[in-house]
């Protein structure tokens, strides 16, 4: 069986992202989330942005009653660590026409925030 170089590279990148997420610090992520995200988001209430509890594993644009941008409504993907990393890096690059625009520059900070959000997912009941 042979695999093309792009497939191998993609698999390597995904594994790298998974490794990075697993090495991330959810407790530090909680501190970062409280500092940077709570201007617009809460865990359980929709505010400027939608609620965050359970976002990992949730279909983008799927909270009933929240006024998403058309870009997010049409995204059609499930939020996972890779998508969230791209979103926090540059949301406009991931979904042109979105309304968040907030960026987290450092990869390690993004990984920690995502680890915290993942800890709040129903599929990952561990709480930091």
């Amino acid at each position: 069986m042979t695999q093309s170089l792009p497939v191998i590279l993609a698999a390597t990148l995904i594994m790298g992202a998974a490794t990075s997420a697993s090495a991330a610090d959810a407790k530090k992520g909680q501190t970062l989330w409280e500092s940077r995200c709570t201007g617009c988001h809460s865990l359980d209430e929709d505010r400027i942005g939608p609620r965050h509890r359970g976002v990992v594993g949730r279909k983008a644009g799927s909270i009933q009653g929240f006024a998403y941008s058309d870009a997010v409504k049409k995204a059609g993907f499930i939020w996972d660590s890779v998508k969230l990393d791209a979103w926090l890096t540059n949301p406009q690059a991931l979904l042109p026409g979105q309304r968040m625009n907030f960026r987290v520059a450092k990869p390690e900070d993004r990984a920690d925030i995502i680890a915290y959000l993942a800890s709040l997912s129903p599929s990952n009941p561990a709480k930091p």
Binding site: E34, S35, R36
Partner: peptide, 17 residues
Amino acid sequence: QRLERGAANAYIGVIPA
């Protein structure tokens, strides 16, 4: 206090955009 800190960080975080 929490909202003000969040707002300050939000305004900083969108500057590059």
